[in-house]
Each structure stands twice: as C-alpha cells, then as structure tokens.
Amino acid sequence: MSNKADMKKASHNRGVSLTRPSKTPWLTWLGVAPFFAFTLFFIFLPSASLLVGSFQNNAGQFTLQNFIGLLTPSVVNAYWVSIRISVVTALLGGLLGFFLSYAVTLGGLPQWVRAALLTFSSVASNFAGVPLAFAFIATLGRTGMVTALLKAWFGLDLYAQGFSVYSFWGLSLTYLYFQFPLMVLVITPALDGLKREWREAAENLGASGQIYWLRVALPILTPSILGAMILLFGNSFGAYATALSLTGGFLNLITILIGSQIKGDVLLNPGLGYALAVGMVIIMAVTTALYYFLRRRSERWLRI
C-alpha cells in the first residue's frame, strides 16, 4: 500500500521536474483555458439556457408549467413514437449487426469478408441524413425499385398492403441502414475478445456447444450487446435530418417537434419547447450513462 503511494509520489515528482517548477501555477491552467472557454460558450451555455428557459414562463418567472405541458397528448405521442422507433431499430439493427459480426469473427469466413464488412460498416454508419432518405425513396417509395420489383415478380403491392416509406416502418427500415453497421462496429471487438480457450475449457469440462453459449459466451457478451443496443437507441433517438427529409415532418418525432418549434414556435409557448429539449437530453443522458456502465463491466471481463 505504502509502496504504491510512494510510486505515485515519485511519478508525480517526475512530472513536475520536467519543466522548471512553475512559480505561477495558474499559467499551467492557462494551457487548457481555450478548450474550457470554448466548451463553456458552445456547450454549457446553450444547454444551461435551455434548462433555465424550461423553468420560465413567457414573463420570465419561475414555473413548472412547461414540464406539466409535456404531458399533453401530442407531446407524449412524439416522445412515444421516437422511443418506439429507437427501440425497434436498436433491436433489429442490433440483432442483424450481431449476426453479421458473429459471421466474420467466429463463423469461419475468410479474412477478406471481415475486412469488407468493417469497411462497409464504417461507410454506412456515416451515410445518414438527407441522401439516405433519397436513397430509400428511390428504393421503397411508390415508384421505388424494390416496390416495383416486388409487384412485378411476386405480385406484391406494398402500398396496397398499407406500407409506405414515409411511415413508421418505412423510417425504421431507413434507420436500419445506419443502425446495423454501427452495431457491427461496436460489437466486433467484444466478439474478438471471446477467447478460444474458454470454449475449449468448457468442452473439456464436458459442456456441449449449446451449454458453452448459454453459460459462458452469452453471459460474457450480454453487457456488450446491451450496451451496443443502448448506443443504437441514442443514435436513432437524436436523428433529425433523415426523418425530416423522408417524411417531410409528417411523422411526429420528438426531434421534428423541436425543429418546428425552433422555426416557428408551433407550441405557442417557447418554454414548452425548452422543456421538450431538456426531456430529450435527460433521456440521452440516462442511456449514455447506462452505456458507459455496461461498457466498463464488459471491459473488465473481456480483458482478463
């Protein structure tokens, strides 16, 4: 114990002796001043301003009315649709991404497939926003290629069945285009971390492949999988450009609602708009915290 403390002290001394011991310690802090000033102005101040605004009424007095206002049906509905689409795309994207990643890590496929998948995932997870919406309109829109082919080959008229690319499921399919590649990028290191020896040790102790997956591999991977899916949730929860370009604002997402509030105060109450944003940040903060908690846990296991 004391040994450790000594070592810490020693390394600290080393750090100080590196340059002349500064007579003005505040000069040392000056080195990071630009960074903190920048983030103060462009992250903390805007966030704080929204937070303050959410507790004020039109006259600038303190009120909780804005948060009560979040309970109006249209707002609740916007949160609900956003959460639903995020859950759906996180689950589906997570599953597809996991199987893909499994295929290239443990599935016995050649190395070039892995390289190709990871490159493609990097590109696709970054290919979002306006152009992605265009691509899906060209694919699954009323005159889109897949819509036409399904009709020609199988006689399946998607739009007669009630499907629309501008709907909840259309947007979900669009989001999946960047969701499952993100899953591949996040979960592949975890699957790489599964040691071959674990499988062999389990077999050696009499376990079948199934028991190995149930009692060893899946429990080890669970924090990583959950963490990755939470990341996917946040990824789609905060998305705005894709949804707006695709549905033109018809789908009542929370980001779309905030967007129209910025443009024209559609809620007739600026405070309510700020409360919407604060509510969103709270949800994002909870998911991010959960993600880091789970990631720390899985790192502890997978590094051994």
Binding site: T39, I43, S47, Y240, A277
Partner: peptide, 21 residues
C-alpha cells in the same frame, strides 16, 4: 466527459440552445 457531451446533446437540441443564446 466534456468530449462525450455531444452524444448526450443531439444536434437539434444544441442548435436550439445556440440560437437562444
């Protein structure tokens, strides 16, 4: 921690705050 904040504050919220300030 600060560098991770943009994950927590979506672009739409950030621009909202920037405009307000």
């Amino acid at each position: 921690f600060i560098t991770m904040l943009p994950f927590v504050i979506p672009a739409i919220v950030l621009v909202f705050g920037l405009i307000r300030v």
